[in-house]
């Protein structure tokens, strides 16, 4: 791990959204959507951010791309020329060259493609925006990209409506790859697809990663999907990372009670494994008005007094295994078997 290159290093990232009320739109509170999140992504690996809706995983991803400007914190990105820049504090005018190197794949392949533009227009858009190549070169590049994602280059003149969900997601991937980015942020790339198509897209993403030496930041809520693509996983709850480690370790030996409950809640596709599930009581805490101490304590079955008062810090309890829980060292939690 020491010798590898950090492509992305996120330090103390925060994004608070103001809550405004009344005629004067005075600020009456803040939603702490992302609250002191730190992690890094190494070149060529896949880090997944998982968690339930409202946990801040998408906001984190968007802050990294500077689609929204974070409240505070650093996102150090290593450019293709080897220089390291802080994307979070860069002036807007200097963002454009960096944006070529970080691209996004969206969740919904039906709304993320303009229905009035042909496949060529869509996939060549990043090339046009960045003034890359002549028209003939763009046609060749688009053809190459379409082949790369498993579509026939002849489809270039067609419109998105002629394609199925899986094919549209392939178009979205081709567009993301147009400028040879090094980091791909994929926000729920398969959650809108049918099961049989999901597998095709996941396989494609794995293959492209090996072929093009891509680094993925994968945002998902489906733990089974995450397991298929990630090297490491970070679990988020109410704007904070509660556990982060290698995929295998997270699934077989989780150390945070929330991770344990999440793993247990996933329905296993085998009727013989109908086990006793841990069903969490209550609902996800409100990021505008979080509980005292550990945000998870009202739903945690292992909570003690300390959990109600002190906020735990994300600590490295074993090499490469970060947990934010007062009782992480003493608890024996249940993971999933092979």
């Amino acid at each position: 791990m020491e010798s590898s290159v950090r492509l992305l290093d996120v330090k103390g990232l925060r994004k608070f959204f103001p809550i405004r009320k009344g005629f004067l739109k005075r600020e009456v509170g803040q939603v702490r959507a992302v609250d002191d999140v730190s992690f890094h992504v190494e070149k060529g690996e896949t880090l997944s951010l998982v968690g339930e809706s409202g946990c801040g995983k998408t906001t984190t991803a968007r802050c990294i791309l500077r689609a929204i400007t974070p409240t505070s914190g650093q996102t150090l990105f290593r450019g293709q020329d080897g220089s390291v820049v802080d994307v979070a504090s860069l002036p807007k005018s200097q963002l454009r060259p960096l944006r070529r190197q970080m691209q996004m794949i969206f969740q919904d392949p039906f709304s993320s493609l303009n229905p009035r533009r042909t496949l060529f227009d869509i996939v060549a858009e990043p090339l046009v925006a960045n003034e890359v190549g002549t028209r003939q070169e763009r046609v060749e590049r688009v053809a190459e990209l379409l082949r790369l994602v498993g579509l026939r280059p002849e489809y270039m003149r067609r419109y998105p409506h002629a394609f199925s969900g899986g094919q549209r997601q392939r178009i979205g991937i081709a567009r993301a790859l147009a400028l040879n980015p090094s980091l791909i942020v994929a926000d729920e790339p398969v959650s809108a697809l049918d099961v049989s198509v999901q597998a095709q897209i996941l396989n494609l993403m794995l293959r492209l990663q090996a072929q093009l030496d891509l680094t993925y930041l994968f945002v998902a809520h489906d733990l089974s999907v995450v397991k298929h693509v990630s090297d490491r996983v970070a679990v988020m709850y109410v704007g904070k990372i509660v556990e982060m480690t290698e995929t295998q370790r997270l699934f077989t030996a989780p150390r945070h009670p929330y991770t344990e409950a999440l793993l247990s809640a996933v329905p296993k596709p085998d009727p013989r494994l109908r086990a006793h599930r841990i069903v969490l009581e209550g609902e996800v805490a409100d990021a505008a008005n979080p509980p005292s101490g550990c945000y998870f304590h009202p739903r945690c079955r292992y909570a003690v007094d300390a959990c109600r008062q002190e906020t735990p810090r994300l600590e490295e309890i074993e090499p490469g295994h970060f947990v934010s829980c007062h009782r992480a060292r003493e608890l024996t939690l249940r993971g999933v078997g092979q």
Binding site: T46, S164, G166, Q167, D194, V195, S196, V197, Q198, A199, Q200, L202, N203, L206, R207, D222, L223, S224, V225, K227, H228, V229, S230, D231, T247, Q248, F251, L263, V266, K268, P269, D270, V336, G337, Q338
Partner: peptide, 24 residues
């Protein structure tokens, strides 16, 4: 084919999934 193609939480990390050829 459908059963084989579903991502499972019990699967090995980072493996290719068997797929159903073509689409609906």
């Amino acid at each position: 084919a459908l059963l084989r193609s579903i991502p499972s939480i019990q699967a090995t990390v980072r493996t290719e999934l068997p797929t159903i050829a073509g689409s609906i």
